[in-house]
């Protein structure tokens, strides 16, 4: 029962969505399929909610047991509640509640969460510069091709570099766009897209037919 019911559910749900692809939206199959899609958004929402609750539980447990670094985890917990609680209260009580512009939720996102996330990713510029200096080596013929292409593309994509490339004859920027980006690069990306899509389709078929069950976990 622990495996049969889930496999049956995945089969029915998958088959309905596959079959509906071949029918008009107004048919009964189309109707069921649309209803399933609405259900998907709801179940999908719960999975994200599960993640948020899980983070809260993990941090709560660490604070209770006074694990190493627990004051920081307490800060995480406080941040979760300060953000979440005002957002679930109705904005008819106060404009500070809810999620609209002017609410606590929106303020905390705009002035704390958003700049912090942007900064965390901005630090990657320093790391990639350091990595380029330390590890980007022309050790073999293949890595030399990679290095030369990267360098020329870096030049081409900025005004100063493009001005430099234009000092040479042969309209190098246009050649790069045509034969590197829309030639070799496009071909490789297309190969990867086709390969990955075939993989995704076959994995989907395995899930629908109950051959692939690893998503259920153990037990």
């Amino acid at each position: 029962m622990k495996t049969t019911i889930p496999v049956a559910v995945a089969f029915v749900a998958g088959v309905v969505l596959v079959v509906s692809f071949f029918f008009d939206e107004g048919t009964w199959v189309g109707g069921i399929s649309q209803e399933f899609k609405i259900w998907m958004t709801i179940v999908g929402g719960f999975t994200i909610l599960l993640g948020a609750v899980s983070i809260t539980r993990v941090n709560w447990s660490a604070v209770q047991r006074k694990k190493e670094g627990w004051p920081y985890k307490l800060l995480t917990l406080i941040s979760i509640f300060v953000m979440a609680i005002p957002s679930v209260l109705p904005n008819t009580w106060s404009p500070l509640f809810g999620r609209d512009v002017g609410s606590i939720y929106d303020w905390l996102f705009t002035y704390l969460d958003s700049p912090m996330m942007a900064t965390m990713f901005a630090t990657l510029a320093f790391y990639i510069a350091s990595a380029a200096y330390r590890a980007f080596r022309a050790r073999t013929a293949e890595s030399t091709v990679l290095l030369v292409t990267a360098t020329v593309v870096m030049l081409w994509r900025v005004p100063m570099g493009e001005a430099f490339l234009n000092m040479f004859p042969g309209d190098i920027p246009n050649w790069l766009n045509t034969y590197v980006m829309n030639g070799a690069n496009l071909a490789v990306q297309r190969g990867i897209i086709i390969g990955a899509a075939l993989g995704a389709a076959s994995m989907s078929l395995r899930i629908i037919l109950g051959i692939e069950r690893t998503y259920m976990g153990k037990g």
Binding site: A125, A129, Y133, M160
Partner: peptide
């Protein structure tokens, strides 16, 4: 532009 040129120089 300037950072790209710097990174190319570093490489």
């Amino acid at each position: 532009s300037l950072v790209h040129l710097l990174i190319i120089f570093l490489v």
